[in-house]
Computed example of a mutant assay.
Amino acid sequence: MKLRVLGCSGGIGGRNQRTTSLLIDHDILIDAGTGVGDLSIAELAVIDHVFLTHTHLDHITSLPLMIDTVADRRSQPLTVYGTDSVLTILRNHIFNWAIWPDFSEVPSPEKPFLRYQSLPVGQSIELGGRTITPLPVDHTVPAVGYRIDSGRGSLVFSGDTGPCDAFWRAVNRIGNLRTLIIECAFSNRERELARVSRHLCPDLLASELLKLERECDIYITHLKPGQVELTMEEIALCLADFSPRMLQNNQIFEF
């Protein structure tokens, strides 16, 4: 299994800033932020599955445009996975005819461009030998993280979250954990904003990682573009024992 980072920034600005999206092999997306826009039309057309962590704009912004771009090149609907709450928000506030057409009814309800599939927390789905499982997190809107398991190893992506004991309990049960990609959206000087918005800053992340009972490589994602250097300096100071690295666009993981 190969995972390619299409976007991992907490915002835009500059040629290297793309918001969250991860491409698994050639046909699965985890989130659909602005990084999806760097794919060619041919690459977009072969994506069959999109797993959403939550519906904040930086994680879904390319989804409506992607469907519109490649619908005429596909013979089957694109499947979008999420919890019931996530899919309800998507239906009510994005694919609602006011913001974007309801592609679950176009060109017809019998043969739509888009289909939804509910995936509750803790319930796994297997796609061609790849198992994907939503994990509990704590954010301001309904949200999940994901475990991606090749059978030989697992990568965990936190999505957006603040402190969450349930997340760590789930992670600590993963016997073949290799990689943890976890957010750190704010610097310590904005700790209160991180707390209110249910994100992490370096001090909060340091406290959370004390709950991790598995050895794995740790990568930091969702850094705010204007605070990358400051936040990574703070992470280096308070998380040195964990040797975290900053996630990079176009980084590839094989597991």
Rank of each mutant, 00 (worst) to 15 (best):
A71F: 04
A71K: 15
A71V: 11
A71W: 01
D72A: 02
D72G: 01
D72C: 02
D72N: 10
D72P: 00
R73Q: 15
R73K: 13
R73H: 13
R73N: 15
R73W: 09
R73Y: 11
R74S: 03
R74C: 06
R74A: 07
R74G: 03
R74K: 14
S75E: 08
S75W: 07
S75H: 01
S75D: 12
Q76E: 13
Q76G: 00
Q76F: 05
Q76T: 08
Q76D: 11
Q76W: 01
P77G: 02
P77F: 08
P77N: 05
P77T: 00
L78K: 01
L78D: 10
T79S: 05
T79P: 11
T79G: 03
T79R: 07
T79D: 02
T79N: 01
V80H: 08
V80T: 06
V80C: 08
V80N: 00
Y81W: 12
Y81T: 15
G82F: 07
G82R: 08
G82V: 09
T83Q: 01
T83L: 01
T83P: 05
T83K: 01
T83Y: 04
T83G: 07
D84V: 06
D84A: 11
D84R: 02
D84M: 00
D84L: 03
S85W: 14
S85N: 09
S85Q: 15
S85R: 12
S85D: 14
V86A: 08
V86Y: 08
V86R: 05
L87E: 05
L87M: 06
L87D: 07
L87W: 04
L87C: 01
L87H: 11
T88V: 02
T88M: 12
I89R: 11
L90N: 02
R91V: 06
R91F: 00
R91P: 00
R91W: 05
N92W: 07
N92Q: 12
H93T: 14
H93V: 09
H93N: 11
I94E: 04
I94N: 11
F95R: 06
F95H: 05
F95D: 10
N96Y: 03
N96G: 01
N96T: 15
W97N: 15
W97T: 11
W97M: 11
W97R: 08
A98T: 15
A98S: 12
A98Q: 13
A98M: 13
A98L: 08
A98I: 11
I99F: 12
I99V: 13
W100I: 09
W100R: 13
W100L: 03
W100P: 03
W100Q: 14
P101V: 11
P101M: 06
P101A: 12
P101E: 09
P101W: 07
P101G: 00
D102A: 09
D102W: 00
D102T: 05
D102M: 04
F103Y: 15
F103T: 04
F103L: 05
S104N: 02
S104L: 13
S104K: 09
S104P: 00
S104G: 02
S104R: 06
S104T: 15
S104C: 10
S104M: 04
E105L: 13
E105I: 08
V106G: 00
V106E: 06
V106C: 09
V106D: 04
V106Y: 08
